[in-house]
């Protein structure tokens, strides 16, 4: 009988080996080290919010606000990924036409168009693009109505897929917001959306008289869920 054999680097063993033993060198293509495994566990636990300045939600956000306001010049926003118990302070890093991009200390970004979230980067299941012009017009005018929403994501293979929603925007009650030392009178606007394929989402915006969205709770993606934002300084 003949010799039988062949090479197999079993998946499980490879993962174990990669997890327990770190490589070194300056070749980025050399392979994984323990660092990579640590990264994914963190991402599962914290959803890709790297360490940086992202603070666990059980720290007192109220104590952070004055620090952030002192540390950052210009506009400041507080963002919370609900499902991950993670808070981040963000500064506005770029304005390109109607699009505003905000960045955390750990290099994650959120992009808004007229206060509506249209992109995220670095959250693990990013919102790659969104078409929200109809929704934005209604919300900022504090008017009810129907609008279309289209959101693009990457699937597990890294290919783009879209979810389109039909949305209803309806005005809610007037609410006074206390943001830092500011008192802002706002109207709550609710947006409920249905994809027609079994996915429903509900976004909420607190809109000032000039149409500025001071506070919001917006759906990001299937993997991230909802993001809560509060702008601390315009």
């Amino acid at each position: 009988m003949s010799i039988r054999r062949h090479k197999l680097i079993a998946l499980a063993l490879a993962v174990v080996a990669a997890g327990s033993l770190a490589g070194c060198g300056n070749d980025p293509e050399a392979g994984p080290g323990a660092r990579l495994i640590g990264g994914v566990l963190k991402s599962k636990a914290k959803g890709g919010s790297g360490s940086g300045k992202v603070t666990p939600a059980n720290a007192d956000p109220a104590a952070l606000i004055p620090i952030a306001l002192r540390a950052v010049r210009g506009p400041v926003m507080l963002a919370v990924v609900e499902s991950r118990n993670a808070i981040a302070m963000m500064g506005r890093s770029m304005v390109n036409g109607a699009y505003e991009t905000w960045t955390t200390a750990s290099k994650q970004t959120l992009t808004f168009k007229s206060g509506i979230l249209v992109e995220t980067r670095g959250l693990g299941d990013d919102l790659m693009h969104a078409q929200v012009d109809g929704v934005a017009a209604l919300v900022r005018a504090r008017r009810g109505g129907k609008a279309h929403r289209e959101m693009h994501f990457l699937d597990g293979e890294g290919k783009t897929y879209a979810i389109t929603f039909e949305c209803t925007v309806s005005p809610g009650p007037a609410q006074a917001l206390a943001i830092g030392n500011l008192g802002i009178s706002s109207r709550r606007m609710d947006e409920t959306c249905d994809s027609g394929t079994g996915r429903s989402i509900g976004n909420t915006y607190w809109v000032a008289g000039d149409g500025h969205i001071w506070q919001s709770r917006q759906w990001v993606s299937p993997g991230v869920g909802y993001l809560v934002t509060q702008q601390l300084r315009r």
């Binding site: 890709g48 670095g122 994501f153």
Partner: peptide
């Protein structure tokens, strides 16, 4: 994938 868009930092805008 549990992180379909990856965990790499955001690009510079």
């Amino acid at each position: 994938s549990s992180v379909p868009s990856g965990n790499e930092p955001a690009p510079l805008p």
